[in-house]
Amino acid sequence: MPGHGAAYFGKLAFGLVVMFAILAGLQAAPRRSRKIIIAFFTFLGGLYFALEFFYPAPSGENFLTGYQPLVAGLGAVIGSFAIGLGVFSLVQLHLRTLSRLRPGWGYSIVLLVSFVAMTVFGLMNEYSPNATVIPTVGGLWQSQNAHGMFRFLFSGGLSNLGSATFSIIAFYIASAAYRAFRLRSIEATLLMAAALIVMVGSVSFGTALTAGIHPKLTDGSENPWANLRIENIAQWLLMEVNTPAQRGILFGLTLGLLATSLRYWLSLERGAYFDKEL
């Protein structure tokens, strides 16, 4: 990396060695002590956040607040190791598919080529963006540098593919609505009526339908009939029917989150990753 000397890489190597030593030690430890070690560090990790929150902070900060960047950094380091693990697993799987010519091996070629191209041009874009990667060939094409190739792959490829996949949802919504919205029961009828009102009330053609009902009377006072404007009915459904339901679900979810977090933090949970089967 530009601007980083031998000391930087030395620290990096030292960090790697320490990390692998910890992992090896944890693997070698007996199952029972491993569980204690994991429970201890899990508790320690959670304890920092709990103490930082509950310790009085009259000026907005307490003695633990300053360590937040350090804790964030630790999280980022663990995450970085995991990314390497994920990439390794991904490449290994597709190389195996390719070597055994399993069904769909063509997709593995596409993945591996894309992976290598994005990695190479991504790194070149960072360190030598002006390096020519494709030379000019006669009148066929102009030369292209690493930055241009990266932009081509990122903006022209990745970004557009992401947008295209997101847009597929519109098609799926239409076909799912067509298939699922059948008046099979009173509940289904109510659900569909509400859905249709909200849909109509949120677009121009729908609001135009009841635009004739003026919000104000000729004397300037509120027109009570304006409540029947489609967008007002839709708004009523969203605020008075949807909101309490959402709030109820939100209470349940938040309590579920609190309970699960407590179980994990205090190692009350049992499961595959807690050394005892469910």
């Binding site: 609505a177 067509y178 919205f181 249709l196 849909m199 949120s202």
Partner: peptide, 9 residues
């Protein structure tokens, strides 16, 4: 599109 979905339903 909303009109179409309503029509389909």
């Amino acid at each position: 599109v909303y009109a179409l979905i309503i029509l389909l339903v």
